[in-house]
Design a protein around this nucleic acid. Structure first.
Length: 275
DNA sequence: CGTTACCCCTGGAGGC
DNA sequence: TGCCTCCAGGGGTAAC
């Protein structure tokens, strides 16, 4: 489920409830998600306070501090992860793998497929963590523009959709928003990245930013219900032009939306509007 | 070095 | 109803 917008909406939803709160307990009901949950993590966390929540790509980074030092909780939602705040003592359901317990609320991490990640980085500089250090540019940062994308795609023979989804180059763009941004820019997902002109790179960079921002805004509108929402943040769904619409008419020209497979993932696009 | 294939895991949908 | 296959919003690693 979660791509950059869903993760950002989760961050925005959690921040006002958790900022400054002290961790009084932690429960791990699964020994591992994608990675082993660090041994002794619960004991390390107790007594620390959340001072900030940062998003880097699709990772949520919780800054946990105390007077005697702290570190960062590194969380990734994977394919099926979700976060919600529940009242302390609320019974855990199936796939509720992690609880972070605060005095007045509990942060609950549910992840049926267990592709998610929960790791600990001791000390201040979480950017040095191996999983974080290799991440590419933030698509919503000022440095990401058509010129950057043009330079990044030179010499790359891979299809542009694959390049967009590689988090070592650009972070946060998943299967849905890759399809939507390429449709918006009128670029075929099959086109070799190096064969996109500078002008069209500008269109694509703008389309990526607009698509992500629109999705964040759509999710943000439901933040009021964050604490008690059944679905938690990320349950919103941006209406898609082509994603998961195989056979339906292209909203632009009416031709049927095509479904193909690229690098093991489904791709949706309009053969007529996207070249 | 860049690019692709496979794998981790569970559940829902659809065919038979 | 059950069983089977395929598919799912991610990404690390091994292999070409």
């Amino acid at each position: 489920m979660p791509e950059l917008p869903e993760v950002e909406v989760s961050r925005l939803g959690l921040l006002p409830h958790l900022a400054g709160q002290g961790i009084v307990g932690a429960d791990f009901r699964a020994p591992r998600l994608r990675h082993d949950i660090p041994l002794g993590l619960a004991a390390r966390l107790i007594g620390l306070h959340i001072t900030a929540i940062v998003r880097r790509g699709k990772y949520l980074l919780f800054d946990c501090e105390s007077t005697s030092g702290g570190g960062w909780l590194i969380l990734h939602l994977g394919m099926s992860g979700s976060l919600r705040l529940v009242a302390p003592g609320t019974a855990a359901q199936k796939h509720d793998h992690v609880d972070l317990v605060f005095a007045r609320t509990t942060l609950r991490f549910r992840d049926p497929r267990r592709f998610g990640t929960l790791l600990w980085h001791e000390g201040e500089n979480v950017a040095q963590h191996p999983l974080i250090a290799v991440l590419g540019i933030e698509p919503l940062s000022p440095a990401f523009d058509g010129d950057w994308l043009y330079a990044h795609t030179r010499g790359r023979s891979s299809p542009i959709k694959t390049v967009l989804m590689d988090s070592h180059g650009i972070v946060g763009i998943g299967n849905i928003y890759a399809a939507e941004a390429l449709f918006k820019a009128g670029i075929s997902p099959l086109r070799a990245a190096a064969r996109i002109s500078r002008e069209r790179c500008r269109l694509l960079a703008a389309a990526i930013r607009a698509t992500l921002k629109r999705a964040i805004a759509a999710g943000g509108s439901s933040l009021r219900d964050y604490v008690h929402s059944d679905g938690g943040a990320g349950s919103f769904q941006l209406s898609c032009a082509v994603y998961d619409r195989a056979g339906e008419p292209c909203p632009c020209c009416g031709a049927p939306v095509r479904s193909i497979r690229q690098a093991g993932r489904s791709t949706f696009y309009c053969m007529h509007c996207q070249t």
